[in-house]
Design a protein around this nucleic acid. Structure first.
Lengths: 179, 179
DNA sequence: ACCTGAACACCGTTCAAGT
DNA sequence: ACCTGAACACCGTTCAAGT
């Protein structure tokens, strides 16, 4: 049985850590604990190491992203919803890559492996919704789309590339032939 | 005017750091200073930061590599000399890549940029020696060779690839046509 | 069942004092 | 001109004591 204060503390630590790590990936754990209003021991009770905290921050963000799929699909046409979601996904991936600098290679890889399935599932939802309305071609594959978005964030460091333009190109490619 | 003890201290710190960093790239600077028999202040006098020390270790090794070119060329035929030297180069690059984990991306890049010229110069010496004896084709280019050796250390993580076999292949390609 | 916060060993870094 | 080593502020981590 998890106590309410424990749940609250965990959430508060995560929120503080997210802000702090955005500013600098070298903030001390004691500092984060203090800002979150808990003792250092409490932080360690929830996150046994720096890696664990950093990865939890990222996975928390990804979780929110995955949880927003239905909301997006219910308020936008499928391709628009996918565009909005993909922008957030790319932003999250860029951030993860930055965080990656402060995390061991192995833990980073393990986390990436864990995320793959859920991300594919989310993309599948968008594509299926689009296929149902005829906005997306029937032979569109989630894995292909994910690979292409990978190119998107890799291009973020290239001043000649415009991620938005590239995404439009990809989304156009998802239209059924002759529409 | 640099004092003899200063020179000795620098060399001893570098030697200790090389061994220590091989074992674990998280050894503390104070520990290295102590093992080298100097005060922490002395280490800081010579290396103003952890990055500076780590990079100095690597560049010291590269320096030895570059200094050994003539020795190798005077005791082996050009292609054999190049084979021996390239093996050492690949080993140094693998090591540098490992060290890279503990060094800021920017400093790492700057160091790589600095090494490029001297490495190309060394390769040029080997190729020129081979061209003089007819062991190496006249149109062999140093930059091409360096790119190929890059593939060599990238392949080190692939269990199906044999770097030695790959190197032989590259060296064979350097022979003049029909020899 | 969970939290607090003092405490520990150690970190990077500095700098007065020495030679 | 260079070295020493005590000292400083801070790090990650632990754990007895509390509720």
């Amino acid at each position: 049985m998890v106590r309410a204060d424990a749940r609250d503390n965990r959430a508060r630590i995560l929120a503080v850590a997210r802000d702090a790590l955005d500013k600098s990936d070298t903030v001390s754990l004691n500092q984060i604990a203090q800002d979150a209003g808990v003792g250092p021991g409490t932080l360690y009770r929830h996150f046994s190491s720096r890696d664990a905290l950093v990865l939890a921050v990222y996975e928390d963000e990804l979780q929110q992203l995955l949880g927003g799929v239905h909301q997006l699909l219910s308020s936008h046409p499928p391709r628009d919803a996918l565009r909005l979601w993909t922008n957030d996904l790319v932003a999250a991936m860029l951030k993860k890559h930055a965080l990656g600098e402060a995390v061991s290679q192995a833990a980073h890889q393990a986390s990436a492996d864990r995320s793959y399935g859920p991300i594919i599932a989310a993309i599948t939802e968008f594509l299926d919704a689009g296929k149902a309305t005829g906005a997306i071609r029937m032979d569109a594959h989630p894995a292909d789309f994910l690979v292409l978005t990978g190119a998107l964030w890799r291009a973020a460091s290239n001043p000649d590339a415009d991620p938005q333009r590239m995404l439009d190109l990809i989304l156009d490619g998802l239209k059924p032939a002759g529409s």
